[in-house]
Design a protein around this nucleic acid. Structure first.
Lengths: 222, 222
DNA sequence: GTCTATAGGAGGATAGAC
DNA sequence: GTCTATCCTCCTATAGAC
């Protein structure tokens, strides 16, 4: 991208694009895609709408760009967790717990310990995951890694019918996503008996919960 | 509501309101709250916007009205399932399976076998469940019955710490809701190896999956 | 790479006739 | 109880100056 040779004060386009995605991510997370206008995004960046369109085109493309930026990293984290576990096991089938953890933990961990961007992104995903038109886009970016995990689940639980595996996997994703969605939901339901629901604590419960769920679907040997 | 004494051709206001809620329900389910305009609702009813506002006031009140209409029925189904199981057990603690089934099945069943209204409502709930501002409204209508079930879960699993119980319950709800959300999601992920994902089949997997999850959180006796 | 101006339409809300 | 007409805000998108 041959940039000009003017003095050093010229702002970097890539950096602007990053800030733009940050702003869109935060707003989409807080208000949803339809609840957010291009004006909101431009306003958060303190710039005009035209600049937003210059960098990302339409609103739909902006949505896709927000997903794409993080999805690549998330895929890397999950793949890395899987490869590390496989290497340690010498290629033998992994424990279900390791697979659940490898898929769920990167998402949970970044929704808490990550920077504000990752926290917004978690809410962003959770908010749109159950809406068909958005889950299509999300699936486009996430399905490849999900299929790798599905193959490993099948190897670890060979007696589990493959159709049941798909169901179990989707239960796992549904649980993961809804947990991240609403920090305040548990407080409301428990009438403040649970405070400041920490997603990390939630993960400690989720891991045995989901692992037991997977195993429960394996047919008993007679 | 003293109605006039004109000829019998006058349309009934209550019936109009029902049709109005049906239309809003379907549109909110398909496009979400922010993605649906009052004009869309009026258009679907083939009437003016003013009529919509006459019956339900603001858009937010319309949303609330849609929830309220079904939530009362759903609460009745769940309560009835619980009471029947308790009566049969003579008031003794119920099996976890019975509790999971009592809470989940009414929602699943109506998303499939119910009329078009109930099917739309399921999608409606799923789409908005993970968005904080809507889950507040949903919680308002659903929490009372949820708390009854939580009390029964505690009675059936006395060794389970109450905070863990809240987590498990929210995992259950997250799984239930996400399952109903996307009939097409499983096909996409499985590359058509699973066709026409039937929520009733999904329920058959969900029941053991979730029940095993609940039990997995009960501390082992040394 | 940044920004202003503006087109052209869709948004929710309201007043008042029938 | 139903409907038309209308207000004004807000939306996305575009053209073109700097």
């Amino acid at each position: 991208m041959a940039t000009g040779v003017r003095g050093g004060l010229r702002r970097d386009g890539d950096q602007t694009r990053e800030r733009l995605l940050d702003a869109a991510e935060a707003l989409f997370a807080a208000q949803g895609f339809h609840g957010t206008s291009m004006r909101d995004v431009a306003g958060a960046m303190d710039c005009g709408i035209a600049l937003v369109k210059y960098h990302c085109g339409t609103k739909e493309l902006l949505f896709d760009a927000v997903v794409e930026r993080r999805a690549a990293d998330m895929a890397a984290y999950r793949t890395q967790a899987l490869d590390a576990a496989l290497a340690q096991a010498g290629g033998r089938p992994l424990a279900v717990e390791a697979l659940v953890s490898g898929y769920v933990w990167p998402f949970i961990e970044r929704s808490r310990a990550g920077d504000a961007g990752w926290r917004n992104y978690s809410l962003f995903v959770a908010r749109h995951a159950n809406a068909p038109e958005f889950s299509k886009v999300l699936g486009k970016h996430y399905d490849p890694v999900a299929r790798r995990y599905l193959a490993e689940f099948a190897r670890s639980l060979p007696a589990l019918p493959s159709s049941d595996l798909f169901y179990a996997f989707s239960f796992m994703v549904g649980t993961m996503v809804s947990t991240v969605a609403q920090p305040g939901r548990l407080e409301q339901l428990s009438k403040r008996r649970i405070r400041a629901a920490d997603v990390e604590v939630a993960f400690q419960r989720m891991l045995p919960f989901l692992s037991a769920g997977f195993k429960s679907l394996v047919p008993r040997r007679p």
